[in-house]
């Protein structure tokens, strides 16, 4: 059916266009100057407007922009450490929940798993004020450590959720066998279970990084200047006289590392690893 085929590719191309539109717009805008912006929507350099690197320069100390290096570093450090800690704690907890039965009063494994996952229902605004006061009390307001703590609360549930499902799919006879071969549960976990769970951990890590990197609200309410994270720095450019060129350049810089994650996620998807991890 060639007609159906044509429609299929047409649909794919239309959606691709929609997906790429904002990013393409940002790319072309990042090379504009004030003149290029105020003369109305133009798309092609040299033809529509005179390209300039001013927008990009403004991110690295140039005029009229923000210094992006420091917030970038903050974002990398905070997201990276919170993800790492969440993966470690989440993987251990998920392994326990998958393999052992816990019973305290009426609380059973399923209830504990639900407690972890239910954290995602919590609207950020409910947590924001107490987090603010808690960090103030701990003297951690406007510090990376404070943000890492808060991000762990956001990311740990994701790690537990993905890893419990993953470990449920790893035959438990493997770890039992390791214990009969003389391993304590820790050794069985480290020597036998972990090497067979790397793809699951990778999936969990991807999701932690995406959700951590993309948070704005907590970074916005819990930091001021010292530990401003990337999204906050970029949004601070957003005002009535927004320098569109700096804004676009910074947006592209912030999105860039996640393109790599998109490629990794697609690989996991096509290898079928993701299907096991997400159900």
């Amino acid at each position: 059916m060639p007609l159906l085929s044509i429609l299929k590719y047409l649909a794919i191309l239309v959606w691709s266009g929609f997906v790429m539109a904002p990013l393409t717009w940002a790319l072309t805008t990042s090379f504009k100057t004030a003149n290029g912006v105020t003369s109305g929507p133009t798309y092609l350099p040299w033809i529509g407007y005179e390209p300039s690197l001013a927008g990009w320069r403004s991110l690295f100390g140039g005029a009229g922009g923000i210094d992006i290096v420091r917030p970038y570093l903050n974002s990398v450090i905070v997201t990276g450490s919170a993800s790492l800690i969440s993966i470690v704690l989440g993987t251990l907890a998920a392994y326990g929940l998958s393999r052992f039965s816990y019973r305290t009063g009426f609380v059973k494994n399923a209830d504990i798993v639900f407690f972890f996952i239910s954290q995602r229902i919590m609207p950020p605004i409910v947590l924001a004020i107490p987090f603010f006061l808690m960090l103030q009390f701990l003297d951690l307001l406007d510090t990376r450590l404070g943000l890492v703590l808060v991000y762990i609360a956001l990311l740990l549930p994701i790690a537990v959720w993905i890893m419990v499902d993953f470990f449920d799919g790893v035959p438990r006879q493997i770890d039992e066998m390791a214990m009969l071969d003389g391993c304590t549960p820790f050794e069985a976990f480290r020597r036998v279970v972990l090497p067979n769970s790397l793809s699951g951990i990778l999936v969990a890590a991807m999701f932690c990084l995406i959700f951590g990197w993309n948070d704005f609200f907590f970074a916005f309410t819990l930091t001021f200047t010292d530990t401003q994270l990337l999204p906050v720095a970029i949004v601070s450019l957003n005002s009535s006289v927004t320098p569109w060129w700096s804004l676009s350049a910074s947006a592209l810089i912030s999105v860039a590392p996640l393109i790599v994650i998109a490629i990794v996620v697609e690989r996991l998807l096509s290898r079928g690893t993701l299907a096991g991890a997400i159900r």
């Binding site: 039992e176 066998m177 214990m179 009969l180 071969d181 003389g182 391993c183 304590t184 069985a188």
Partner: peptide, 10 residues
């Protein structure tokens, strides 16, 4: 004895 000290193979 815990499983890893029992000298049992399965």
């Amino acid at each position: 004895l815990p499983a890893w000290k029992r000298d049992v193979a399965m």
